[in-house]
Design a protein around this nucleic acid. Structure first.
Length: 419
DNA sequence: TCTGGGGTCCTAGGACCC
DNA sequence: TCTGGGGTCCTAGGACCC
């Protein structure tokens, strides 16, 4: 509980997916660097996954945005080179990055596949923070081949805002004393947690910059946005005190799996099969983590207007059994589906607890036998691959019997540096 | 032939109990 | 024959992030 000043780094890989691809290709004899031409990583249009996931700096200049449809991006930039995603490669790069960062601090928080926080408090022996950050940035570039932006400050929010100040391949500080000069002049939507819904509301109130927000009467924000308003005011003033949590101590709150189907689903039977393919991986991930769930939720996205709705239920006894979860999902789907064409289906489980001592309810079906089957199937799939055992209901359907990855690490080994 | 997939947290409103 | 009010639990949906 001491109030000692902390030193926090935020590391952000520049155009992560695209950089990873570029490095991999260069190392395999490619003569062009994808980072230097208009290029983007995007899903397949044929399966209706065609959106931009990452783009090169030259692509940015055409106004192409992440999340945009491929055809829209091509309208802006006809010569755009599209690369299909390779998540296995990205996970390898991610692991290599985290491993390098752990050489500098044992408190590394993985924030996403391309972002990490590091607690560098008390690491003065390594040198001044700015020098150490530059050393890390340079080593990543030399050893892993991609560039990062680093933000340095005394809390996570400011470190993260700091890494945005200059990129690519740069280090910036954003200490509390620098907030006024470096952060307050930025447009309010640049503030972490001010998204597309909040920014217009703030502008309507005459708040255009982060500084406007910081100087705004907190009572007014509280009245207008409840607790959200207080959070935004704090962030605008650089107030944030969450600690760096190593991944080993972070708790999973929920496990979800969803998919955009490559055709519109119009019948219940097909929808059920897709739900099953989603539940298969959710079940495996639950069991892999040694967890059971009490809340099960199904979400449906309409094909016509892309709006979605969800339906959930709480069950008496936590379960990790694929068939049990599937039965609940079918019920949830049947109760909520309004018979319109479906583009996207999702399954999510939450209220997780450890599976060790699950209390059996007298009123619910006994799934003990199913659980044993789950265990055997999991082991076979682990050993021989996910397609080793598939359900006969998927035969002749041309539907994938399993949707989504098993767990982030199940499919690819951890590497120490890129190839 | 439009717009992916994985998360987290908060809030409103209804049911129900006392 | 009178409509108060607090608390908890649950669900749906919306906000944000990457």
């Amino acid at each position: 509980m001491d109030s000692k000043e902390r030193t926090i780094f935020h590391i952000d890989v520049n155009s992560a997916f695209l950089s990873f691809e570029a490095v991999y290709r260069l190392q395999h004899g490619a003569d062009i660097d994808l980072r230097e031409i208009p290029s983007a990583v995007a899903g397949s249009q044929a399966t209706r996954h065609g959106i931009i996931l990452a783009k090169s700096t030259p692509t940015k200049k055409y106004g192409v945005k992440t999340g945009e449809a491929i055809w829209q991006a091509k309208q802006k930039c006809p010569e755009l080179v599209i690369i299909p995603p390779n998540y296995g490669l990205y996970m390898c790069c991610h692991h290599a990055l985290v491993e390098l960062l752990r050489e500098y601090s044992d408190k590394v928080q993985v924030f996403s596949i391309d972002e990490c926080f590091m607690d560098m408090t008390g690491m003065k022996i390594l040198g001044e923070p700015l020098a150490v950050a530059n050393q890390i940035r340079e080593r990543i570039k030399q050893e892993l081949g991609f560039t990062v932006s680093v933000g340095i400050s005394s809390n996570k929010l400011l470190a993260k805002m700091g890494s945005e100040l200059k990129k690519p391949d740069a280090v910036s500080t954003l200490y509390p004393s620098e907030i006024k000069e470096k952060m307050w002049e930025l447009p309010v939507e640049e503030l972490y947690m001010v998204g597309p819904a909040t920014a217009p509301k703030l502008r309507k109130m005459g708040i255009y910059t982060i500084g406007d927000l910081a100087r705004c009467d907190i009572e007014l924000l509280k009245y207008r946005f409840k607790s959200w308003g207080v959070l935004l005011w704090d962030y605008a003033n650089g107030i944030e005190d969450s600690v760096i949590t190593a991944s080993s101590q972070s708790v999973i709150k929920g496990i979800g799996n969803s998919t955009t189907i490559h055709f519109d689903v119009e019948d219940k039977e097909t929808a059920h099969l897709i739900l099953l393919s989603l539940v298969e991986t959710v079940g495996m991930r639950l069991r892999y983590a040694g967890l059971s769930c009490r809340v099960i939720s199904v979400s449906i996205k309409r094909a016509d207007d892309l709006t979605s709705y969800s339906h959930q239920m709480k069950i008496q006894t936590p379960t990790d059994c694929t068939n049990a979860i599937y039965e609940y999902c079918k019920r949830l789907f049947d109760e909520s589906w309004k018979s319109e064409p479906i583009r996207h289906l999702g399954v999510r489980v939450s209220e997780l607890s450890t599976s060790d001592c699950v209390q059996l309810s007298m009123f619910e079906k006994n799934w003990e036998k199913q659980k044993k089957i789950d265990k055997v199937v999991d082991q076979l799939r682990m050993r021989f691959g996910p397609d080793y055992i598939i359900r006969s209901s998927f035969l002749w359907t041309r539907l994938a019997p399993l949707q989504g990855g098993l767990s982030e690490d199940a499919n690819f080994p951890v590497m120490t540096s890129i190839l």
